Simulated scan of single mutants.
Amino acid sequence: MTIMIIGLLIFLGSHSIRIFAENWRQQKVAQLGLPTWKLAYSAVSVVGLAIAIYGFGQMRLEPIYIWFPPMGLRHAVALLMLPAFILLVAAYIPRNAIKAKLGHPMLLAVKVWALSHLLVNGRFGDIIFFAAFLVWGILAFKAAKKRDRANPPAVTATSIPATIATVVIGVVAYALFAFHLHSLLIGVSVFG
């Protein structure tokens, strides 16, 4: 579990710079240039995520159970993950109404994903993993909204086709992940 925690500290720590050290970040961007900053930030993030995922897999080999969630909660997770995928897609499709209304759909997707997975995972390591992402998501969303209030983003016109595409792609991505990729990549069948 130590490896997972180290990975989480690296990954979520790098992603917390805008929460706790925005001025330092701005200084580094000015000093290094945005492309160099993004490259360094991405490298640290990828390394941290890889370590966290590896540690998560290792933690599952010797689980410590805190509680045993009722099987019925799996249905709640399956239901909650549908809007999480749509929110995730909304972060990337320009001019969709979901992003225009919510502002930071990626952070909302992380919060829904983490909370829903806390419902069905009773192992100590799982609780640490998903709770860390949930706490980070809450803090990052709060910080992003504070930045928006200080410097409001430009209002862009929304597009009905972009919004429909966001929902359709989100539903398709959800179906692919729920019915195929989750069991292949995570080793747990969503509906089995």
Rank of each mutant, 00 (worst) to 15 (best):
M106R: 01
A143Q: 07
I17L: 15
V120C: 09
K28S: 10
V167T: 00
I160L: 12
L12M: 08
W136M: 04
V29C: 08
P70H: 11
R25D: 04
V110I: 15
V120S: 15
M81Y: 02
P35K: 15
L88W: 06
R149L: 14
G187T: 07
A144R: 13
S116L: 05
V29I: 15
G7T: 01
L181G: 06
K145D: 04
P153V: 08
A150T: 09
F133W: 10
L176S: 10
L107K: 04
V120N: 12
I19A: 11
I53E: 05
W113F: 13
N96R: 04
T166L: 02
L9H: 05
V29S: 06
R149C: 04
I64P: 03
A52D: 09
I66H: 11
H117Y: 13
F85W: 10
I19P: 06
G72Q: 08
S189C: 03
A175N: 02
G137V: 09
L8V: 03
K99V: 00
G103M: 06
Q31N: 11
A78L: 12
A162R: 05
T158P: 00
V167F: 01
F20L: 14
N23T: 15
A165Y: 02
G125H: 11
I186E: 12
I169Y: 05
H182M: 07
K111R: 12
A140I: 03
A78H: 06
P70S: 11
N151C: 09
I53T: 13
D148C: 04
A165F: 02
V172F: 07
A114D: 04
V172D: 05
R25S: 02
I93F: 02
V110A: 11
A144L: 04
L181E: 06
L61Y: 06
S183Q: 15
R74M: 13
G125Q: 07
K146E: 12
R74G: 11
T163F: 02
G187I: 11
I6L: 14
I98T: 02
Q26P: 01
A50R: 11
F133K: 04
L181S: 10
L185V: 14
A100F: 02
A144T: 09
V167Q: 00
L102T: 01
M4L: 06
S116M: 07
F85H: 06
I138K: 04
I19G: 07
V47L: 15
A114I: 02
L107G: 03
T156F: 07
W136K: 08
G170P: 01
S159E: 08
W37S: 07
P94H: 07
A144E: 11
F56L: 14
I86T: 00
V46D: 07
L176Q: 05
M106G: 02
Q26W: 09
M59R: 06
I17A: 10
V188P: 03
H75V: 08
P153H: 05
D126H: 10
M4A: 09
I127M: 15
V155K: 10
A76G: 10
L102Y: 00
A157G: 04
S159A: 03
V29D: 04
H104F: 10
L49R: 08
V47A: 13
I86C: 00
I66E: 10
M1C: 05
V112C: 03
A91Y: 08
F129L: 13
